[in-house]
Amino acid sequence: MFKALSVREPQPACADVEALSETPVETLLELIDKAQQPPWVGMRAASCLIQGHADAVQDTLVDWVQQEDSRGFAILVLNQIDTLPQPVAIAVATQALAGPYASDATSRIAKSTNPALLALVP
């Protein structure tokens, strides 16, 4: 899976990548945690989690917007806030607006089409 996510182009499809593991969520989380290079491996793995497994990894998504060293993941999930299941989106947005990336969060959540998220923006 690491090799598949390393490719410069064409970009791998999440379904193809996840088919390489019997436990794709766990493997994607391991890659996010341990694969330092190239940087797009972690970003692509995170994108696959957001797109297909947001419910299962809600705590991880919330962690990204709260931790000091995860601005890239935070922006990634905030850019896709409208694609998340509503409870996950509310949890992520609420914590993001109170976290270290509040400025990044405010500008992105303000572009949401979800009234419940817009209501969170100060």
Binding site: I32, P39, A46, S70, G72, A74
Partner: peptide, 14 residues
């Protein structure tokens, strides 16, 4: 963003 990675910062390797 993709080139900076999850931490959103540019290390020397990045």
């Amino acid at each position: 963003l993709t080139n900076a990675g999850g931490d959103g910062e540019f290390s020397d390797d990045d």
